[in-house]
Design a protein around this nucleic acid. Sequence first.
DNA 1: AAAAAAT
Length: 516
Amino acid sequence: MASEQAAEVPKTGNSLEDRISQPDDATSGAPQASNTSTSWADEVASSTQNDDAGAANKTQDTSIPQTDGAPSALGGTDLHEPEYNVNVKLSDLQADPNNPLFSIKTFEELGLEPAILRGLTMMNFRKPSKIQERALPLLLNNPPTNMIGQSQSGTGKTAAFVLNILSRLDLSTPEMQKSPQALVLAPSRELARQIVGVIQVMGSFVEGLVVGTAVPADTHSRPSRLECSVVVGTPGTVMDQIKKRIFLTQRLKVLVLDEADNMLDLQGMGDQCIRVKQLLPKTVQVVLFSATFPTHVHRYASKFAPGANEITLEHEDLTVEGIKQLYLDCESDEDKYNVLVKLYGLLTIGSSIIFVKTRQSAQEIEKRMTAEGHTVVSLTGGVEGSKRDDTIDKFRSGEAKVLITTNVLARGIDVSTVSMVINYDIPELHDPTSRQRKADCQTYLHRIGRTGRFGRVGVSISFVANREEWQMLMAIQDFFKTDITRIDTRDWDEVEEIIKKTIKNPRSHANYSQEQ
DNA sequence: AAAAAAT
């Protein structure tokens, strides 16, 4: 199995506990500026930025300093992952200092079947990304151990859990090929379908592999039995099909929650995930992946995946280097629309996603822009399933280049051509007890992570129309210790120049073809 | 508060 190069094994235990116990909530201390100043715009003007001296030498880590500019998920040679520290905590079972589960540098070291390696080759995956180097040996080891894995958006989490699934399937008989052995749960229909696509491509050469999708159907026609080896779905539908014995779970070996923090945290979905898990064999390997694991969810996660090996990051390390974060002032909510149209008047580069707060405003903006001759599409949860499928497919193919959407697509969606993300509204959380709006840092990170994938560059532009929005954005900047730079809308030539300069030179290797 | 997810 795993590598011979046993390398230095990390001191296990200690570090992580300390880390999870530190306060995690930047927004709680809302941006100082508090008092009576005249307007948010003034504050903006006077805040000449960047107190962030702390960012640089913030973390001293007992864990492993990471590899020298290793190529990203795809192994394209000029794609770089930036430096950051990865915290690894091995389960008690695997806390043996001699274990070889430390890290692998090539896929070949994993002892995968030739058919799986061929799939990787075909996808142009030459070298493992950082998360793959560390997670794969732990995932693939026997006996199977649970895992909680965190890494930045666009660094290959999906490929990591798919490899684990493919290598654990027993497809030796027709009966086994039709027996679900792995289940992946995702928080949206679109993400579930995307994951199905990845499994199919990576598993192209795996004999007898059948992948099934369990998302709400528009029709009431229902199969009597789910005859596939891997199932990918959304929690409600999966639950439903298990209860109706359409989906037989007794041979299930692996359960993956993608975007696990979201799945477990969301009211309704968390319960369903727990209930689904209760209906699976107790021996199932539980694998949780996300770019974010806020403290309060991490607690649930550890219960849901007991004894898990963990790979976690500091939140300073979560922003992706290739994503340039900008913001624009708008005079009012209504003015946001004018700014948006102006922006699109001077930019037609690649594909872009516009995130808004509500389904209704997504629809409205789509209508208005369409009426003015722009070609845009919108996708929200209010739309019929098959229509959603059409829309996302059009966006993936490039037929539609501008997508207006809500948080439904904030997570996981991988479309390599997306070079710009717009936060038309700053993502916010509502605290029911204090009845206050707070910045939703996690969602912000996931949204901007729709661009800049696998070492590419991208730009995010947030619209700020009032003091609250500006405060939320500054809270996000503080939380991730990153830079969100203001650009001046009084000079549109400059706006254009800044954005074009950023998106130019997109280093866009077309070597990751999971979307098609 | 809005969004997603089951019917």
